[in-house]
Amino acid sequence: MAEAELQQLIKRLHSTLKTNSSTNDSMRLLSRAKVCLLRLNALVPTPDTPETFLKLARETLELGALIQIRIGGGAAFTTYFEQLQPFYALPPQILPRENSNMSKITGLCLLVKLTGEDYSGFHTLLESLEVAAAQARERGEGGKGLEDDPYIQYAIRVEQAMMEGSYDRVWGETKSSKLPSEEFAIFSQLLQQTIRKEIGDCSEKSYQSIPISNAKNLFFLESEGEVVEYAKSRGWILNSKDGRIYFPNYEGENADDFAERDLVMASGQVIENTLGYARELETIV
């Protein structure tokens, strides 16, 4: 009974995913599907769950994850991802890997962590993937290693470029032609915002001033009007006479002031340390 209903629901979920219909609809369908799973006792895999139920459960959860990504629910997506883990961990003899969106979902999860600036989570997940891939390679059955997985490689490439500071490469990756699948487009905008902020932070420190026309390319903005707007939002000074942006936080010239302030700070530290040594010496001698 519940099984037939679930299959029906999954079909409808697929169609909502394709037609991009309203979120309310899909959310309602999702919760109904999950109730069905509970009735089948298949939300968490047990040793005696039959294979058909396992497949259905995995499909439902994957759909749920994809829908959440579409509506931008990062936290809810992560919950689905965690729920999927026990299914992905099952050996292929029990639950075949065919028709699974495992690498797509994992790649999306990596990006969620990346845009959320959860770098340690990103690397923790990557580490376990790496170990699993190495294991598969050793047994000679894995076929697809991490290197051949377009979804995961995409996330790795983006992360590497971001850490290096090659923001133009990150920008290139967000172009639609480079995306491994349409779901990743959601992150493009987030990533663009993130790198723009990063570039802004770097520019404040590295440049004294730049022409507005150059800034347009530097910040990947569409027009000079947008540059002006962005500069204002960050509190940079626009000089309309020579058409340049000046960065108020630039520390190139007044470095000497800075050193003096440093010295005042340091003397407090020195006094504190010396008192500490004296106290320790007293306990020793």
Partner: peptide
């Protein structure tokens, strides 16, 4: 051995930051 001058500029800027 970087890909482009733009990359180099961003990378240097990040190193300064």
């Amino acid at each position: 051995g970087l890909e482009s001058e733009e990359s180099a500029e961003y990378i240097v800027a990040k190193a300064i930051k």
